[in-house]
Simulated assay, not measured.
Amino acid sequence: MSRITTPFTHDSTAAEVVAGVDLSGRRAVVTGGASGIGVETPPLAAAGAEVTLAVRNTAAGERVAAQLIESTGNSNVFVAPIELADRESVRAFAASWDGPLHILVNNAGVMAEPLTRTPEGWEHQFATNHLGHFGLALGLYDALAAAGDARIVSVSSSAHLRSDVHFDDIHFERRPYDEWAAYGQSKTANILFAVEAAKRWADAGIVANALMPGGIRTALQRHVDAEAQEGWDNFPWKTPEQGASTSVLLAASPLVAGVTGKYFEDNNEAVPNTGEEFSGVAKYALDPESATRLWELSEKLV
């Protein structure tokens, strides 16, 4: 199968990839839509979609929603609370949803934070970045299926190259904790989720893809100390508007209609990682056996 490419690149913005697309009548949920690239993902609203910002900080969410309504003229922008590391909060959000859901953008996340555990004992990055979004997608399955042609978009990272999922000790109960290994593992899980959802939910018309948004300076880096950021100045940084482009492409563009189970970066399907550069997709992140194993484990947990 040939690699999927589009006319868009590293420098394209979310507004550019959705230009001319009419999303009237379609409904979207964007987690983490009150900060970082989540704020830029709702050009979906400018294209006419109803957009719900699923956020921890509802006050910040309301401010972003008001700005979106004013700038787009679309009054169908809403805010709802969710704490992805809290199973009950995720279940409550899903239970409160009524009607079809056409687009789910799993955007929220935490990165390289000190070891923190949920009440269940789960490592917090894995719980937030993967398990929370997994539980949300499961809870919204009926709404996604009712749409007939729903799209799930999971924001991963090139940091998935730092770690496969360590099934023998996912939550760092026996191995030394490393914040970057934990983050990388959670980002690999985001890709494996898309691989398995693509297989399990195809008959319901649901497609699922993952992506690397690019390097964007946001509050996501708040746990990364200055020493760790040395050398980052030469990194090909993106603006938030550019960083949201691949999410919006997968959520809305007709150029990728029907595409599923893939990992994109810079608005094109990623090439295999060669080990020489910190880009592309790791073979283990697309492994179908790992994807099934992770799904079955995650179902038991959530």
Rank of each mutant, 00 (worst) to 15 (best):
E113V: 13
R87I: 14
W122Y: 15
A150C: 12
H171K: 03
L140H: 05
T118H: 12
A94L: 12
E123S: 02
A137T: 08
D98R: 14
R91E: 09
E88A: 15
A182L: 01
N106F: 09
F126H: 03
P100S: 15
A150D: 11
L144R: 05
A143Y: 11
Y141V: 13
L161D: 02
R87M: 14
I170P: 04
A159V: 00
E173N: 15
A92C: 08
N107A: 07
V165T: 05
P81E: 12
A95P: 08
P119N: 10
A92D: 08
V90C: 04
R91W: 07
R162V: 11
D149T: 13
L84N: 09
F172E: 09
G139F: 03
A145W: 07
P119V: 07
R117Y: 10
A147C: 14
H171V: 04
S156A: 04
A92I: 08
G132I: 02
A181N: 12
G135R: 05
H124T: 14
G121N: 01
M111L: 06
R162D: 13
S163G: 02
R151C: 07
S156M: 02
H160Q: 00
S156G: 01
F93Q: 11
R175I: 11
A150W: 10
F167G: 09
A137L: 07
F167K: 11
S163E: 03
Q125V: 04
A108F: 01
D98Q: 13
T128Y: 01
S156C: 03
P81H: 11
R117P: 09
V153G: 00
L131K: 08
A137D: 01
L101Y: 07
D178F: 04
L115V: 10
D178L: 08
H160C: 05
L115W: 09
A85Y: 07
G132T: 07
L84E: 10
L161P: 01
W97Y: 09
E113R: 13
A95F: 10
L136K: 09
E173Q: 15
V105N: 13
N129V: 00
A145T: 08
S89K: 01
R117F: 09
A145P: 04
A94K: 12
T128E: 07
L144W: 00
S96A: 10
Y177N: 00
D149Y: 11
P119Q: 09
D169N: 00
